[in-house]
Design a protein around this nucleic acid. Structure first.
Lengths: 351, 351
DNA sequence: TTTGGCACTCGATATAAAGGAGTGCTAACA
DNA sequence: TGTTAGCACTCCTTTATATCGAGTGCCAAA
């Protein structure tokens, strides 16, 4: 039997969706199960609680809301939140003042590393949650320059400068002593060969040429390449992220079990899993939202992640994220993350 | 009237002190107020609970123990703990195996930074509390070498190497373009003048010579000195510390109020206050113990810090600390911190 | 389709009673 | 004089019980 109510493709009546939206908005504000009476008022449609109750039943059958116990109101389920986020959300525009604040705060931070730190702190400060920024992956950045400095016998300081202005250095223990001249020559050769290449390419080319040099017994070149390889390799696992405002998360009653918090904080300290998670969204463009339970990591239960990639010269170089309770003000957080990503990208370009 | 009981200079009978010791040891184990019956058993002196009660009264009058309420046992006060730590503690010797573990774990970590990270992780791992290591202060380390590399127009990469193998780099925006030769000459001059000097001295000498150079209109030298000054200054506030295992502290019921924990974790994130605190003990030698309430920082209420300086070539270069609940096993933690400090110092020397 | 009514559930809150650990004090004992 | 047993008392903890109220589900009527 065809019903008269307007059914969207996911099988939920339009009015029911509206109630779901109002319910979730209320739940986000209060953190309390929402009862039919409250919802009737909030919806502003002059309907009686009883009517609402009927709709709630439908929503519960669809798995979009649930009640913690018989005589409590309803709280949204993960699927409910998902639907809310995907199709019900009305994102606020950020006020001009806020945009300005972000812009100025990012404008006055020094070098690249500092800028990223500022960005994560900014995110956490504005949202009162935890802010995360992944640092640009070395693979995507390009080789600019390498230099070797003699330190003491058999020790050489290698300095690698990349296109984005990052500097990595590493002390090499060499088999024999090198003169300053030799080192300069080696650096010259390497700079000449690799300048401008992506680090990933540099890595493979170094290996190729190293083999070639060995075959032709070109000692000098082989040694130069060996050293270069060591530096490039060592600077590779630089993949990392900056997290700020973790302690803000302690304020949310939703996450307040120490059990839960500890797991979360351990993940922050470890970082690996967080990075891995964010990497999944690396190729999406624009803001993505991600509900903890969907990840399978139980440390993220009760949390959501709002994330966006940031770009330099059209290339996505890193991710930016805010992590907080699933019950967060998405309408406010989403534009913040979005704008910050754009401004950060622009700021990184100017250096 | 002279009493027969042996009174030590602090006005506490020897036997009473013994009971205090037993009480605190018990309290450290259980975290529960200790009653007279329990204490009678633990003391192993075949005395009745009633006798113990009399002694407890005395200890309470002296402010060494307190009862949370009428019908609970006694818990040590801060002063009680202080006395325990200062004169009652019997420190265990570390088992040879444990020493070996520390030694090997520190032996296989790479460069200096890595070594310090390992040390803090080691401390937290072995004690199940938070481990802290302050990184050597730049002032105490000596200038070894400076180099300048041209990056692009008006940008120069400056690299500063110190005696302890640390490398600091900074990108300078210069007024005009420099040739490679000019930069090399500047570096040569600086290396020649300052090599081996303590950073603190370098800082002041740079200023002196800068003035001299300006007076004599020696442009080249003035510019070199200006750049050097910028690098030295920038690398100065490198004072920092590494903290590991913070989340371990969430397991202790003593600190489990979120209020309390948040303040503590904020302090960890900020680091400044922690550093300031540890600096107070910088000149003490050997292990120092420090009860949170004594500091005035209320974030440390309920905590104690066990700290020891570590030395390279007779010079104290940094501090090492474990932070945990005041109710911690000092007998075990003290030798761990002590030994780790020594091994860390030795490990740093060999590089 | 909406609404009012009604019985019912169940958490939250309050109150009371029982149990028990531990104290302080007193008086007796070695 | 130090030590001990005895005893009344305190106060936390646990358990049971009752009450309140928010909210539900369902039914019958509008």
């Amino acid at each position: 039997m065809a019903t008269k109510k307007v059914i969207s493709e996911n099988g939920v009546g339009e009015r029911a969706q509206y109630f779901l939206k109002v319910l979730i908005e209320r739940y986000i504000r209060d953190g309390q199960p929402v009862g039919s009476r409250t919802l009737a008022k909030d919806a502003g449609m002059d309907l009686s609680p009883a009517t609402i109750r009927n709709v709630m039943c439908d929503l519960e059958d669809l798995g979009l809301v649930a009640s913690p116990h018989t005589s409590a109101g309803r709280i949204p389920t993960v699927t409910g939140f998902r639907m809310f986020i995907d199709s019900l959300l009305t994102v606020q525009r950020l006020q001009a003042g806020e945009i300005e604040r972000i812009r100025t705060e990012l404008a006055y931070s020094g070098d690249a590393g500092n800028l990223l730190t500022s960005a994560s702190q900014l995110l956490s400060g504005v949202t009162h949650m935890a802010g995360i920024v992944t640092v640009p992956r070395r693979e995507r950045t390009a080789f600019r320059q390498i230099e070797f400095l003699p330190l003491s016998e058999n020790r050489v300081l290698a300095i690698l400068v990349t296109n984005d202005g990052e500097v990595a250095n590493r002390i090499l223990n060499t088999h024999r002593d090198f003169t300053r001249l030799e080192l300069d020559q080696a650096a010259n050769f390497l700079n000449h060969s690799f300048s401008g290449l992506e680090m990933e390419k540099v890595r493979s080319r170094v290996l190729e040429e190293l083999n070639a040099a060995r075959e032709s017994f070109d000692q000098t070149m082989a040694q130069a390449l060996e050293m270069a390889g060591e530096v490039v390799d060592a600077s590779a696992p630089h993949e990392d992220c900056l997290i700020a405002g973790q302690t803000n998360l302690m304020e949310f009653e939703d996450l307040a079990s120490l059990q839960q918090l500890r797991k979360l904080f351990d993940a922050f300290a470890e970082k690996r899993e967080i990075l891995h998670l964010l990497d999944q969204f690396h190729n999406a463009d624009g803001v993505q939202i991600f509900i903890g339970e969907e990840s399978g990591f139980q440390m993220l239960n009760g949390c959501s992640i709002v994330t966006a990639p940031y770009q330099v010269d059209e290339d996505v170089v890193g991710m930016l994220a805010v992590i907080g309770p699933t019950r967060m003000e998405y309408e406010r957080v989403i534009p913040i993350v979005d704008v910050t990503a754009k401004i950060l990208g622009a700021a990184l370009k100017n250096r």
